Simulated scan of single mutants.
Amino acid sequence: MTIFEMFSYSFMQRALLAGTLIGVLCAVLGVFLVLRRLSLIGDGLAHITFGSVALALFAGLQGAAMLLVSLPVVLLASLGILKLAGKARLGGDAAIGIVSSVGVSLGVLLAVLGRGYGVDLFSYLFGSILAISRAELLVAGGLFITVLALLWLYYNDLVALTFNEELAAVSGIRVRFLNGLLAALTALTVVLAMKLVGVMLISALLILPASAALQVARGFRMTVILSVLFSLLSVVGGIVLSFLLNLPSGATIILLAFVIFCAGYLFRQLQTVKNRN
Rank of each mutant, 00 (worst) to 15 (best):
L16K: 01
V224W: 00
L192K: 05
T252D: 06
G51V: 06
V104S: 04
A135Y: 08
F122A: 04
M200H: 05
V273T: 11
I207F: 14
A140H: 00
V199P: 02
G237L: 10
E166C: 05
L266H: 00
L35M: 14
S203T: 03
A193N: 04
L192T: 11
L25K: 07
G86T: 11
P248C: 10
S234C: 12
A15R: 02
W152S: 02
V99F: 14
W152E: 01
G114F: 12
Y265C: 05
L57G: 11
I98T: 09
A204R: 09
S133K: 03
A168Y: 09
A131P: 03
F230Y: 09
F58C: 11
L245I: 05
R218S: 12
G172W: 01
F7L: 06
N156R: 15
Q62F: 07
Y155I: 00
R36Y: 09
R221G: 02
V190L: 05
I239W: 10
V102P: 06
F220T: 05
M66H: 08
A15H: 07
R37P: 07
K274G: 00
R268P: 10
R115Y: 13
L67Q: 12
L71P: 05
T189S: 15
L158K: 11
R89F: 08
L182P: 11
R176Y: 04
L90I: 04
V235I: 12
T20M: 14
L206H: 09
V139Q: 01
T20N: 06
A213Q: 08
A77T: 10
S101T: 13
S171E: 15
N275G: 08
L61M: 08
L188V: 06
L33H: 13
A95P: 00
N156K: 15
A94D: 05
L181R: 04
I48A: 15
A15Q: 00
L137N: 08
E166Y: 07
S8T: 02
Y265H: 09
L206P: 09
S39W: 10
F126D: 05
S39L: 10
F230D: 04
S52P: 04
N179D: 08
T252M: 06
A213D: 10
T272L: 09
F4R: 01
S70G: 12
L241G: 03
L158A: 03
F177Y: 07
L90F: 06
L17H: 00
V73G: 05
M1N: 13
L182R: 01
V24G: 03
A54D: 05
F122K: 11
L205P: 03
G238S: 03
A64E: 13
R134G: 13
F261D: 02
A184R: 01
L33I: 10
G118F: 11
L16H: 03
S105V: 02
T20K: 07
V119P: 01
G91S: 14
A27I: 04
A85Y: 06
T146N: 07
I22N: 03
L151A: 11
L185Y: 05
T272Q: 13
Q215C: 14
F58P: 02
L29A: 01
V53D: 05
F163G: 07
R174I: 11
I202S: 00
F122R: 11
L138H: 15
G264Q: 02
S100V: 10
S133D: 10
L76V: 14
L84T: 08
L138T: 10
R14T: 03
H47I: 04
V34A: 04
K195F: 07
D157H: 12
V99K: 13
F4V: 00
A263M: 12
S249E: 15
T189H: 06
